[in-house]
């Protein structure tokens, strides 16, 4: 009997077998007149080729700032990265020169922003803005770049692309504009796409279409995807794993379906409980009490403690590590971690 061994052929995209992107102990602070805002405090996460990581959190949780640090588009000053590494294919991008990083931006790592209307240049045609990628990064002629732009618009399913290539952003609908943003990010077939709330500005039916398109293209190109969102509904269908952020830290990490089934952090549980559900019609909707912390004065201990229903004395003094989460019998739960002193109680009972 011949056993056909499944040989994992490394795709030409991944280099040394390590993760595509790895963020290690990243800290970002903003130096403002009122004081130092610690926006990101030791974040770790990684994404592989073809994998989707969803980063979930409220505004001010540091999810966008982390992404901007990865992208290298933070305004420094006022932002500062005092500590941490951002490894792209094993190389620390924070140690690279500005020019080296610029060549990665757009070409290897691309970003999709939230509000396509303000994120596209209002006075340049979409064809110009798409073609610019090819002209700048590949030295293509204006004419070829325009042909490529039409091809891209086709690819993201914009009807009558050839006729609309010279139109301006304000002449497109919201969904079409976001498709153009996606096309722009996709232009040079990057290894990693960071989508910062790509569907927040769209209405619900269009949201689903845009998410689906993004997921399809990601599969087709085997790209890594970091999906930043505050919407648990968006995440469920597309993400492989989730990192939940609160006050600049990752508070829980889990494969997507496990997180929904068994949250291991009170904050995640609160988020899940505050989703309206059809089977609880007529009941009052749960809300996490209190407000996200002011990052100038983060509470001591666990930053979530003033809002946490389970908070004890230790929560007010000790910052919890990101503990690995296990089954009650001690067996490992792959890819799960929780930054709660009482994760056991939270997940198991």
């Amino acid at each position: 009997m011949t056993v056909i061994e499944e040989v994992s052929v490394p795709s030409p995209r991944d280099g040394d077998g390590g993760p595509l992107l790895e963020v290690r102990d990243l800290h970002v602070e903003f130096h403002t007149r009122e004081g130092v805002v610690k926006a990101v405090n030791g974040v770790n996460y990684s994404v592989d080729a073809g994998e989707t990581l969803a980063v979930l959190g409220e505004s001010g949780s540091g999810k966008s700032v982390t992404a901007q640090a990865v992208m290298g588009i933070l305004d420094m000053p006022p932002a500062k990265i005092p500590q941490g590494e951002i490894l792209f294919r094993g190389q620390d991008m924070l140690k690279m020169s500005g020019e080296e990083r610029r060549k990665i931006r757009g070409r290897r790592i691309a970003m999709i922003f939230q509000d396509a209307l303000s994120s596209l240049n209002p006075v340049l045609s979409v064809g110009y803005q798409l073609g610019e990628m090819f002209r700048v990064h590949q030295g293509m002629s204006k004419k070829d770049a325009k042909a490529k732009a039409i091809e891209l618009m086709d690819r993201v399913k914009i009807p009558a692309a050839a006729a609309r290539v010279n139109d301006y952003p304000h002449q497109f609908s919201g969904g079409m504009r976001q498709r153009i943003m996606i096309a722009m990010a996709l232009a040079l077939e990057p290894d990693l796409i960071i989508a910062d709330e790509p569907t927040t500005a769209l209405d619900v039916t269009v949201q689903a279409q845009v998410m689906e398109l993004l997921a399809d293209l990601q599969r087709e190109y085997n790209m890594g995807l970091i999906l930043i969102t505050h919407d648990l509904g968006v995440v469920a269908d597309v993400a492989d794993k989730i990192a939940v952020m609160y006050a600049g830290r990752i508070v829980e990490r889990a494969p997507v379906h496990e997180l929904y089934k068994r949250p291991a952090h009170p904050y995640t549980r609160g988020l899940l409980d505050s989703i309206p559900r059809l089977d609880q019609k007529g009941q009052e909707l749960y809300a996490i009490k209190g407000l996200p912390p002011n990052l100038l004065r983060v509470p001591s201990g666990c930053a979530f403690n003033p809002r946490c229903p389970k908070a004890q004395d230790i929560c007010r003094t000790d910052i919890p590590d990101l503990f690995p989460v296990t089954e009650p019998d001690g067996s490992e739960l792959v890819g799960r971690a929780s930054a709660c002193h009482f994760w056991k109680e939270t997940i198991h009972g």
Binding site: I73, R102, I104, R105, G106, R107, F113, S119, M133, M184
Partner: peptide, 14 residues
């Protein structure tokens, strides 16, 4: 400070 400038930088333009 406009968003489209951030986009232009994110596109890796010089």
């Amino acid at each position: 400070r406009a968003d489209y400038i951030r986009t232009a930088i994110a596109k890796g333009l010089p």
